[in-house]
Nucleic acid binder design. Structure first.
Lengths: 206, 206, 206, 206
DNA sequence: GATGAATGAGACTTCATTCAT
DNA sequence: AATGAATGAAGTCTCATTCAT
């Protein structure tokens, strides 16, 4: 009630000192559970559901993530990290075009598995206040930019698209796949359409 | 909201008897307000907000739409109807290819205006229980199918896509545009990519 | 969660239009119940307890007082109003000295009955943000000032005390009486001591 | 907190065996920290806050004081002890009247410093179940009784007040001073009023 | 003994829905 | 029919207390 002014909403512990082994383990469990639950039930599920899925009490969830929003953000960040790593891994691939489309395809497929990677992508560049998200998002953006540029230089991707459009298409295609109920056929065809659309127009000059 | 058991509630009044003039007028006002409010504030807004926007009391909203979900569905249906009409209007266009892409483009643009037509499209074919939605959805599906078939016959759209993929792409592209914050440039380029991807491959036979 | 920015914390209804008859009745019941419950169980009781005592649901309490703090403040204001009226009623009494001590005595006695008028007095002049409380508090202050001044002019109260001290002594004596478990004897003697202390020193000039 | 049934829990360790040196040191630190924190933030602060102020973990606080209430009581007792000592020290003063008023004044002043000695006084004689508090309270009562009696015999204090009233006035005056925001002027005047009120009526015999 | 992570009951508050006016 | 007050289930978050390390 009254005694709340000092509400800087930070986690309970002194963020600097690394967590105790068991605490770190629990934090990870909560994060994993949250990822799964949010994916399958939407961001509207209750925190209790997350706690239950993680096999801990609500208190524990709130100890690690002071707010439901903080938990959501943490899930997003984790997802972005995975994507950023994938993109980085493909950074020096021999065939830049293949690498680019490979990444594109993988994102959609992963989303089909994790059931809403989309949400992660959606977090890119949005909500400037969420510092962590933005930082990680930047990593992803950089890696993706690199992938795209090389693919364009190799003539595998049309020149008039930039990362913005690629991200948008990534998000959109994932949404499309989701809408199709993740039906493999529709998903494949949708992906094909978008990928073909991304290739340079074959100017039929003889 | 959702977790209610299949509780088939009907509107308060006898569906057969036509509404009194003022009642009909109120229903329309509520629907319009709901469309606007849900669009700008998301489906999570309170029913009170809708009522306020419509200039009526909550009671009135519930009299016309027995449930918040029912109200949401009604909004969806209304949006689908508009789309179905658009599609029908283009059914006999001279240039089937142009007609198809015209529709595609319009959907995205309208979404940008209404700010979440996406949600409407997303309702197509989902939630089999929502009978009305399904019915209207079928109309839209039929009209779209017609548009697609003619465009394919005219050689303007690749053969390996069906309505399912088109719908998915419609939903996805709208989502992409939404993600891009409805930025006109990104929107245009995204749309271009998808449309180009939908065209038949220009087989580079000399 | 998210949709909270517009949190101006006002009561639900349009404060300007007078409440419906039943609503006003309920508001009064809630206020009375709150006064009683807070008095007997302390400000820490749950809002549910207040609701129960008022015979309404929690929702109703929150409809009228958007916050537990708001409810507490309302109770304070109500108490201050009563005191202010009492003081005003004595404003033109014939014997200013008697009037002053009459008021002093009454406050203590009333506190014994209502069991914590003290809290009300305690609110005087504190918490500058609570506008209503301050306004009403000012009324009380003015009335009390008037009472005091007249009593001093009449030579019934020592010259070196101002309203501040009187208020403080009022609060303190009530607290003393409360501490004594409202034992009538102790209360009477305590009051006698304070009142005697407030009279001018009988300068023993022959 | 309170609503627990009479659950007579004892401290974790065997009360008879003296504590280890470091444990005793910790107990003292916790008690001091609790005194300070409760004084400045009210009894509603969290146990964590106390632990933090003491530079120990919550667990340690609970090891020494099995309950938050127990901690509060311990703080009260400690405060009462100080008061009792003060009173004892003045027991044989040459001028009994001066000694009495000296004690009275000191209590208020100390409260101003510690900012809520009041709470300590308030514990006197209340809550019969808190055995320790009662015992120590008795010491204080005895010492105060002695002080009062001697002062009355010396004709410095009116005959119609007993320890009960003195305690009540002590509590009340402290409360008054607290209400006045510990403003030195108001405090001094309030004190003067009460002290004057405690003196025998100067019977105006020529 | 000390630590701080985990626990979960319980507090506050919101909002879909009902119902008296 | 319309209104808006009342209701109470449910969600988020806090904090006294326990317990593994």
């Amino acid at each position: 009630m009254h005694p709340e002014p000092p509400d800087q909403r930070a986690s309970r512990h002194d963020a600097r000192r690394p967590l105790r082994a068991d605490a770190r383990r629990n934090r990870a469990r909560v994060l994993a559970a949250a990822d799964a639950v949010f994916a399958s039930e939407g961001a509207a599920t209750t925190t209790e559901a997350v706690a239950r899925a993680a096999g801990v009490g609500v208190g524990t969830v709130f100890r690690h993530f002071p707010t439901k929003d903080a938990l959501l953000e943490a899930v997003f960040v984790a997802r972005l990290e995975v994507l950023a790593e994938e993109a980085s891994a493909l950074a020096d691939a021999e065939d830049p075009g293949a690498a680019f489309f490979e990444f594109f395809t993988r994102v959609i497929e992963q989303s089909a598995n994790r059931h809403t990677f989309a949400a992660a992508l959606a977090a890119t560049g949005v909500d400037v206040e969420h510092t962590t998200a933005v930082t990680v998002g930047d990593d992803l953006l950089d890696a993706l930019d690199h992938l795209l540029m090389r693919a364009q230089e190799a003539g595998a991707v049309r020149e008039d698209v930039s990362v913005s459009e690629v991200i948008a298409l990534l998000v959109g295609t994932t949404r499309a796949a989701e809408h199709a109920g993740w039906d493999p056929t529709v998903q494949a065809r949708t992906l094909a359409v978008v990928c073909d659309g991304l290739r340079p127009a074959t100017d039929a000059t003889p």
